[in-house]
């Protein structure tokens, strides 16, 4: 009986925490979508596909999913120099965006969970704040 209760409790708490994680992600993505529209869309476009040879794609982007820290760093401090995204080389400049750490986390959650991307680990303001130039 006791173990049954315990397992029920464990199950419930897992369900509950996964719900709250989902809710947190959902809310963060909503805020991130607004930031994206404001700061990113004119180059990376609403579908995240970017512009070939100029602005790298975020949609189904191997770079974004495999380089979590570098991506956050890029959002925080800007990017420069050659990168390879989905087998294609890009060499352009993205100016520092002037976003606060919570905004970086939100837009990161949005882009890494949109257009075919999936990121199970929520990006938090704390994580962003630890990433230095």
């Amino acid at each position: 009986m006791k173990s049954a209760l315990l397992s029920l409790f464990v199950t419930l708490s897992v369900v509950f925490s996964s719900f709250s994680q989902t809710d947190a992600l959902k809310e963060s993505m909503e805020r991130g979508h607004e930031i994206y529209t404001d700061f990113c869309m004119s180059c990376h476009l609403p579908n995240g596909k970017g512009v070939e040879k100029v602005y790298p794609p975020l949609a189904n982007s191997d770079y974004l999913i495999k380089n979590r820290e570098a991506s956050i760093k890029g959002l925080k401090y800007g990017m420069q120099g050659e990168i390879t995204v989905n087998g294609k080389k890009y060499n352009s400049v993205m100016a520092p965006l002037g976003l606060s750490d919570d905004e970086v986390a939100d837009v990161m959650n949005y882009i890494s969970n949109s257009w075919g991307n999936k990121n199970n680990k929520l990006v938090t303001e704390a994580e962003v704040s630890k990433i230095k130039k």
């Binding site: 404001d38 700061f39 520092p96 965006l97 002037g98």
Partner: peptide, 8 residues
């Protein structure tokens, strides 16, 4: 200078 987005 307010550096944000396209501003600077």
């Amino acid at each position: 200078i307010y550096v944000r987005g396209q501003g600077g």
